[in-house]
């Protein structure tokens, strides 16, 4: 019993240290991972869909491919389409029944505003609110922008409106404790997934 007590104490100490590091160093960086100051503050076409009292994250990544090669993977986003290009094995632990398409599927290449996009099987959904092929795709404010750096390089910028500020204590615990870090893990995974697939495509 003494060993068990000691193990529980060490684990709690490890957890407290992890939480401290996360809040002081990690969270401020992951909220704008990869994005420049200019990109964070830049007005984007789908900003009008975001209510002003929301916590907003802006993240960005370089893709060594023209935006026409990145776009098809964004166009087929959704559990009911080509997946989210993220960690599908992690999504499936939560029963999402996610399958990431490994190729571009022609029938999913023409998303239009109003299309329903599922986040997982029996889970939430959102409708597409804005589409500009090769430029912009928005799911109720969660927006993906492709900016051409030059003919062979693209900047993928994702802006996400998450929790409204001033929520109840329990909602805040859920949001800051689980949703926010998990969303970062999945969104950054998605950005790297799109980058990987666009860059390997010939």
């Amino acid at each position: 019993m003494k060993h068990i007590k000691r193990f529980v104490s060490y684990t709690l100490f490890f957890y407290a240290t992890t939480a401290l590091i996360y809040w002081i160093f990690i969270r401020p960086l992951h909220l704008s991972w990869g994005a420049t100051f200019k990109e964070i503050n830049k007005a984007m076409p789908a900003d009008s869909l975001i209510s002003p009292n929301r916590v907003v994250t802006t993240r960005a990544i370089n893709i060594q491919a023209p935006r026409e090669r990145a776009w098809p993977w964004i166009a087929q986003t959704g559990q009911n389409k080509g997946g989210f290009n993220s960690y599908h094995w992690l999504e499936n632990l939560f029963g999402a029944s996610m399958v990431n398409a490994d190729s571009i599927v022609r029938q999913w290449q023409h998303p239009v505003p109003g299309d329903t996009i599922y986040y997982g099987k029996h889970q939430g959904y959102q409708t597409i609110s804005l589409v500009k092929p090769n430029e912009c795709y928005s799911l109720g404010g969660w927006s993906f922008y492709l900016h051409a750096i030059d003919s062979g390089n693209t900047r993928l910028i994702i802006r996400y409106p998450s929790m409204e500020v001033g929520q109840s204590r329990w909602t805040s615990i859920y949001y800051y404790g689980l949703f926010e870090p998990l969303h970062f893990i999945m969104e950054s995974g998605m950005m790297m997934g799109i980058k990987h697939k666009a860059e390997r495509q010939k």
């Binding site: 992890t18 939480a19 996360y22 990690i26 991972w33 689980l178 870090p181 893990i185 950054s188």
Partner: peptide
Amino acid sequence: LILWLNGFSVAYSVMIF
């Protein structure tokens, strides 16, 4: 950077859960 951010975000969310 992303390895650190991802690692600690995983650790933190698993910890809360």
